[in-house]
Simulated scan of single mutants.
Amino acid sequence: MTQSDAFLSTAKRVIAQEAEALGLLSDSLGTEFTTAVETILRAKGRTIVTGMGKSGHIARKIAATLASTGTPAHFVHPAEASHGDLGMIGDDDVCLVLSNSGETPELADVIAYTRRFKIPMIGVASNPDSSLIRACDVALILPKAAEACGHGIVPTTSTTMTLALGDALAIALMEHRAFTADNFRVLHPGGKLGSRLTKVRDLMHVDMPLVSAETPMREALSVISDKGFGVVGVIDADGQLSGIITDGDLRRHIDGLLDKTAGDIMTLNPMTISSDALAEKAVARMDERAITCLFVRDSAEDGRPCGILKIQDCLRAGVV
Rank of each mutant, 00 (worst) to 15 (best):
H57N: 07
A262I: 07
S68E: 09
E301P: 02
K61Q: 13
L98P: 01
T65K: 02
C136F: 04
T267H: 03
Q17V: 11
D264W: 06
I62D: 01
C149W: 08
S274H: 14
T65A: 02
D92F: 13
E214V: 08
L258D: 06
N100F: 01
D247F: 12
V200K: 04
L86Y: 05
K281N: 13
A125M: 11
S131L: 05
D207T: 12
V124M: 10
D238I: 14
A282C: 10
F75E: 08
L294R: 00
G123L: 09
F75D: 03
A146S: 06
A262K: 03
I291N: 04
D259C: 05
A6Y: 14
I244M: 00
A262W: 00
D238A: 10
S55M: 07
D238S: 11
D264E: 12
M217T: 02
L258M: 09
L8E: 15
R134K: 13
T156I: 07
M88S: 03
L8R: 15
L29I: 07
A125P: 12
A6E: 15
G239H: 08
L193C: 02
L24E: 02
A164W: 05
A59I: 14
G56K: 01
V206K: 14
A79Y: 12
S299C: 13
D236E: 15
M174F: 01
M266N: 04
S55L: 07
G70L: 00
L250F: 08
M1V: 12
L8H: 10
V283G: 06
G166L: 01
D202S: 12
I153N: 11
L163K: 01
R316D: 15
E103H: 00
V234A: 06
S275K: 03
R251C: 08
R177Y: 05
D137N: 07
G87T: 01
P105W: 05
L294G: 10
L107M: 13
E103G: 06
I171A: 07
L258C: 08
E103S: 00
L173T: 00
G233V: 00
E103C: 04
A73G: 12
D236K: 13
N269G: 12
G248W: 10
L309M: 03
M271S: 15
C95T: 07
D226V: 11
A282N: 00
A36P: 13
I133W: 04
I62F: 05
L197Y: 14
N127R: 09
E103L: 04
K281V: 13
G228F: 15
R13T: 02
G102S: 03
A170E: 01
P143I: 00
D167N: 06
L309K: 08
P120S: 11
D226I: 14
